[in-house]
Amino acid sequence: MHPQAYRYSAQIVWNQLQHIAEVLDKNELPGWNTAGIGSDFDGTIKPLPGLWSAEALPLLATELVTLSSAYLKKNKLRMSENQK
């Protein structure tokens, strides 16, 4: 596995967070702090490359901060509470 695989995986997670935030913002609902990230622990999960355990969460967090900061610099969501 590529040592930077987690970066691509973080992008997949970010796609979710961004889409959810944008749809909620359009509907004048709080867009962030609504989705959680986790697993259902039933043994059939298919973790994303580079994000195989809780050990990878700090890496994921750092990457998500980078992606979200870049997004918020470029895009303005409608509700002020969603703009930061």
Partner: peptide
């Protein structure tokens, strides 16, 4: 989605 949790599997 206030109640939503996003898993990745």
């Amino acid at each position: 989605s206030r109640w939503m949790r996003t898993g990745w599997h």
